[in-house]
Design a protein around this nucleic acid. Sequence first.
DNA 1: CTAGATCATTGGTCTAGACATTTGGCGCCC
DNA 2: GGGCGCCAAATGTCTAGACCAATGATCTAG
Lengths: 263, 263
Amino acid sequence: MPMRLQTESGPFRRLRLDKRAPTPAYAQIADAVGGLLRSGALPPGYPLPPERVLCDQFGVSRMTLRQAMGILEREGLILSHRGKGTFVAHDRLKKQQQELRGFTEEILARGGKPESRLLSFRQVAPPAAAREFFAMAQGENLYEIRRIRLSGGVPLTLETVQLCERLCPRLEQFDLEKNSLYRILERSYGLRLGSCVEEISAELPAAEHRRHLDLPRGVAILTIHRNTYTDSGLPLELTKSAYRGDLYSAIVHSVRRQRTGGK
Amino acid sequence: MPMRLQTESGPFRRLRLDKRAPTPAYAQIADAVGGLLRSGALPPGYPLPPERVLCDQFGVSRMTLRQAMGILEREGLILSHRGKGTFVAHDRLKKQQQELRGFTEEILARGGKPESRLLSFRQVAPPAAAREFFAMAQGENLYEIRRIRLSGGVPLTLETVQLCERLCPRLEQFDLEKNSLYRILERSYGLRLGSCVEEISAELPAAEHRRHLDLPRGVAILTIHRNTYTDSGLPLELTKSAYRGDLYSAIVHSVRRQRTGGK
DNA sequence: CTAGATCATTGGTCTAGACATTTGGCGCCC
DNA sequence: GGGCGCCAAATGTCTAGACCAATGATCTAG
């Protein structure tokens, strides 16, 4: 007897697709299947229905379905093997792209309760480093924001942000103790954050750190310099953060460079 | 007069494709175009020929060409806009995936001259943390390698690596002062590195650090705990590194999570 | 009982089209 | 001169197939 054709899609049976929606079919499929996988309802190694079966179910052609599967595979949610099938990947395989987050988002993601205390908000003449980074013309101004950032009421970092006034004029109208700066930039100025480069280093505490961070003895400072760009590559923000070394550490996900691979 | 159809592919004119080669057409195209872009010969914003022109030139269908373009777009080498065209992206836009590297590779990439001094190479009973990470059975052993790692003759970090003997038996036959551990794992054991998670923190120097790292006064320690996995998600290596804070900092690239997007 | 051939099933690649949507230049009309 | 609409060109999405290559179950010959 030939190998039985798999027709029972099991947990995938109920997934559907709205052909009238403006979102493309492949995105809907990737969202639907991806959501099911991320829910953790299926154990690693659990087989997905064959592509041709899913095509029937969603009512799309195979190329469209494979566009969705490609997204899921790049995210590390599934693993495909020619001749065998496609399977739910192990959790550890999830390709965690290093994610750009502001302090507020980062602390929320870690289960903390972010707060801010504004130390100063000034317009300053740009130092050379900032002038070069932002490609500033003569006479352009820089916003400089200094804040203590807390989690659960404990001072965690002393942060200095520099922003080019050209990109976010009248920034002073916002309350930077109550609002996430990144949210303001995205929502109110339509600046879509794109990427950043951080340099993470270790230092001994200086007087300034002791003054603001309530440092116990025997604690070092984790310093992060961040250069942020918009999604179109425009220099957006320059940040220096001094974290309490005993309360904060940076988590970094890396992947091995591989062959350019399929999908 | 209608808008002139672009037929001059300019710098792209000479790119060709070997239909008999075993590598898929889309990979060849991505390599060829990607190589031209990475060479820096074209300025940011320079327009690529329309997809249909490239299809003709390479002799492939549009879906195949778009598979190649999708790779380049995900790498951040090009930017596409519906209705306008496809353009060379700005350098800053290149999606630098955080890359997993061993010390040797990292120092070479930074233009240094990596060396190692072996402090100890032992088989030890696994501590609880390692037993859990490697999912070790009773009686299994752990390799523990302690090395001073230098760049240009200067001690840079004190590194302790733990490896599960099951995955790389008879590791003691290799000279770990002369060979990159990652190279050994890949070449001699066929273990393909996949990804890692690092926790980066700051500490004050301990006696051990002073003893081995030749520390000047006023220097903190940058500590990196690394959990490494193979490309199939198998736990491979557990490393703790203590870097001289004045000589080393970690560079991290991050990108903003976006809509699942096309291609 | 085993080694090898067969073959259906699977994902990987590719084609030759189609229609949709966005953009921007051009010409027309006021 | 200044809008406004048309339309060609461009990318985005999708189809309904095709063939290839790897896998592994089954069948068959020894």
